[in-house]
């Protein structure tokens, strides 16, 4: 892939990571306010959607879904998975900086391992297949 194409792929990676973090943090905050729901009925979830944090989280995750599909049209799944795991690192660092959460040394180790995984995957080509997958699926 040429440099320009690679830059577009990296921009999509950034959008996927940021929308994933903002969407999940917002959704999680909203669901903690809503309280316990374990149900197979979609109607029980509608009430949860009236919470503004939950609603905002779902809108941001819809944007995440679009960016993720666009990214998967350009890059390998085995590239996208480790690279977008940088979202975990951002969530942990946001928690530390904004909410002053304590990060134990094991969590720091987790952050270091994930960052290592992101860096390693970034050193591989973004796409190794040509055209659609032909066998099995």
């Amino acid at each position: 892939m040429n440099a320009n194409g690679n830059r577009k792929t990296q921009l999509l990676v950034l959008l996927v990571v940021v929308s994933n973090v903002l969407g999940n943090v917002s959704l999680s905050h909203g669901m903690q306010q809503v309280g316990r729901i374990v149900s197979a009925s979609p109607f029980d979830y509608l009430k949860a959607f009236t919470n503004p944090w939950t609603a905002a989280g779902i809108c941001i995750l819809a944007i995440w879904m679009l960016c993720d599909l666009a990214l998967l049209s350009r890059a390998d799944l085995s590239f996208v998975l480790p690279v977008t795991a940088s979202a975990y690192v951002l969530v942990a660092l946001f928690g530390k900086i904004l909410l002053h959460e304590h990060i134990s040394w094991l969590r720091w180790l987790g952050i270091v391992l994930i960052t290592g995984g992101v860096v390693l995957a970034e050193e591989t080509p973004t796409r190794t297949t040509k055209g659609p997958p032909e066998h099995l699926i």
Partner: peptide, 24 residues
Amino acid sequence: VLGEDVRTRRWAAATLVAAGVVLL
């Protein structure tokens, strides 16, 4: 299944991420 070229670096990346997520 998808026929991607997964070699040592990508396996190492996936393993590091999975281990890191557990440690978090």
